[in-house]
Simulated scan of single mutants.
Amino acid sequence: MDHHELILRRHDAAAALGMRAGIEPVYVASHADRIAVDPFSHPDRFWQRLVDMYAQAPGFVLVSGSIAGRLIGYGFGCTRSAERAAEIWSEIRAALPDLAIPAGPQPVFIFNEFAVHPGHQNRGYGRTILDALLAGRREPVANLFVRPENPARAHYLAWGWRKIAERKPFADSPTFDSLIKDLRVTANWTRAAAGSGGDGPGSDQVDGAPPAVQDSTGVEAFPPARKPKVVDPPAGSVAL
């Protein structure tokens, strides 16, 4: 297998919870600086949030990226129902008056977590996983949290995310910038297609890859040697 060949898979909650052996090393390596100084970022706390909160939310999905059979990155999120997303929409109206707001309540995709192993950063893999996670979403916008000092913040802004507020989702968590991305720009979203779902706070990790040219599906266009390979997935997972 070519060492640049990235394989993407989509996993439901049950499958994701069986992937700790693959997910946790990526989390630990990519969050090493925060784990050393912030109890909130401890791997056990991260996994407990995944088990107790994120994976329990309706619409949960995780996209993994693997090379040569080894997981090198992941991103996951869920849908917040229109009723529970009212505060986000209020913040959008106040912060982004230029953004066209749906007339009625709409759900929001909550982008919970995103990480790429440092040994595979700056190669475009993180952007690929993120675009695959967001591609085809029925919600009009996505929401994530990122620490203001995180270098990832500049990449999110370059990729079309916009700040709407500052939020502290847990009593012992840092204060994050709350960013949103208009998914209608890269997908044929319509109000009739929008669903409803669950809940969960946002993400604070991304690799350092620069923005990439996108095709019509919102997924990164690859040189032939780096085109993600489609494989037969395990139960609970779908090849992308």
Rank of each mutant, 00 (worst) to 15 (best):
I23F: 13
G18M: 08
I35C: 11
A132F: 01
R127G: 12
N112W: 05
G136V: 03
D182G: 10
P43K: 08
E83V: 11
K163D: 04
K227I: 13
E24C: 04
A171F: 02
V63I: 15
A82K: 10
G160P: 10
A235C: 00
A13V: 10
W161D: 01
S30F: 01
L8Q: 09
A192S: 14
M1W: 09
A154S: 13
G200Q: 07
V63L: 07
F222A: 14
A235D: 11
V116S: 02
I35Y: 08
P174A: 04
P228D: 06
P151D: 05
P25D: 05
N188I: 02
P43E: 09
R123F: 04
A135Y: 02
I164S: 02
F176C: 03
L240V: 11
D177C: 11
P39Y: 02
I72H: 09
A29H: 06
A95Y: 04
H3G: 09
A142D: 03
R70E: 15
R49F: 09
V230K: 12
R138V: 12
Y27L: 05
E113S: 14
A187W: 04
Q214P: 00
G198E: 06
G124D: 06
L96H: 05
P224M: 01
M1P: 13
G236L: 08
G126P: 02
S237E: 12
A193L: 14
G77Y: 00
H4W: 08
A142K: 00
N143L: 14
P39T: 10
D38W: 07
F60L: 10
H3N: 14
G124C: 05
V146R: 00
V206L: 15
R49D: 06
Q106V: 14
I164V: 15
L71S: 02
R20W: 08
T217S: 15
F109I: 05
N188K: 13
V61N: 07
S237T: 08
R127N: 09
V230S: 12
I164K: 02
E87M: 10
K181L: 12
P223F: 10
H120L: 02
R45S: 15
H117A: 07
P107M: 05
A85L: 11
P148R: 03
R153K: 13
W159D: 15
V116T: 13
G236F: 06
S173T: 03
T79M: 13
V63A: 07
